[in-house]
Design a protein around this nucleic acid. Structure first.
Lengths: 208, 208
DNA sequence: TTCTTAAAATGACATTTGTCATCTCCTAAA
DNA sequence: TTTAGGAGATGACAAATGTCATTTTAAGAA
């Protein structure tokens, strides 16, 4: 039997998660916390095998709470939930030793993810993995807002620096090829560069 | 019902895996391949949801086989098995879009891993995750003689990776523009790349 | 609702790029 | 000496790229 603690500041969400997980014969929700602080307090008493935790919460956020809990000696495997792709958190989640990072939307996969995490495997939402190499390598000594580079443009930059053609980028981002061309063009203007190769060089010299 | 194909060049291992997985009510082993080549051949007919594959095999290795299979349009989620921590393979596995990378030893977690992978989550053995940040940052050293890159070609590569156009490179090296074009073309062939941007990426990822 | 603005797409265009066949030198080996 | 081979060059060509003007679409503000 896998014992679970759920942490989410939205009672509706935590309630739903509890129902989903309690419905599984081999999973038991032992506690529900409505904030990071409460989770830190409950963890030692409950001693769950798995902690399912929202990463973005009012007050103490998910990663900080998890860090505290693990520092306090908990053996729990932490499985983070996120509504969308929070790039910024993945790094920290990995660093503190989280065992999972999945998208809230596909709750259908939650039980199997909990089991996998309980058995010592690490689980990531599919989309997260695709970005993993980029995310871990990025060192951010470049401030995109400085040149008002939009998030979408940043994505294009990373794909160009991965060697993709405009057509490939278009497919990956669900845009028209011409659009990508325009975006690249606009990026080049903003960064005062001439072509995509210079953009790739810029990326590796200034952004990685 | 999750359909699975098992790939391992050790019949004892593949047999054991089949027994373990067939024992699960919601998992069905549809095929067992004893080599990478066989897996590539079988994949289109079997069309499994998940491919459980040994990463280190005689003949075609796991990553190459998986790459081929995915290129052929298979929608399968690939779950790699490894006897211990094969650092070298993780990078490539991630790059080709593998959905799992776990340790053979803890077969107890295999069913739950298969389920998680089938539901679109990515799964990694616990120890793998700890090493992930290091692994992704490390770059394999590049040996120019390996690809018989001439010294002059090496110079061209560096200039391309500096963002220069063919014309600029030609001026700098006192060559014709066409010659530079041919040299770049030859370099691309040798390194199995498509265009100068990919060459620049290659340079920063493998050569600097 | 209408108006406004930003994002996305289109089409036309010049340029760059990558590939290939071919040609000219030049040099080293026979 | 002849010859084979490499480096460099040329021309032709298709494809990809970057730029620009313009249009369509979607979403918000009025």
């Amino acid at each position: 039997m896998i014992s679970v603690m759920i942490v989410d500041d939205d009672p509706f969400v935590s309630g739903s998660l509890k129902i989903i997980l309690d419905n599984e014969p081999d999973i038991e929700v032992k506690a529900v916390a409505n904030s990071g602080e409460e989770a830190v307090k409950l963890a030692p008493q409950v001693a769950p095998d798995v902690i399912v935790m929202d990463i973005r919460m009012e007050g103490m956020n998910g990663t900080d709470a998890a860090q505290k809990i693990l520092e306090n000696g908990s053996k729990a495997a932490v499985l983070f939930l996120t509504t969308f792709l929070d790039d910024e958190y993945i790094n920290k989640a990995l660093k503190i030793g989280a065992m999972g990072y999945i998208i809230k939307q596909d709750c259908g996969s939650l039980p199997s993810s909990v089991r996998a995490v309980a058995s010592g495997q690490a689980v990531f939402g599919g989309k997260v993995v695709e970005k993993l190499p980029d995310l871990l390598n990025r060192k951010e000594r470049f401030d995109p807002s400085e040149f008002d580079i939009t998030p979408k443009e940043l994505e294009v930059i990373e794909l160009v620096a991965d060697g993709l053609s405009n057509k490939e980028i278009a497919e990956k981002m669900f845009l028209g090829e011409g659009t990508v061309r325009n975006m690249v063009s606009s990026i080049l203007t903003k960064l005062d560069l001439r072509d995509r190769t210079q953009l790739a060089c810029f990326y590796y010299q200034k952004m990685v």
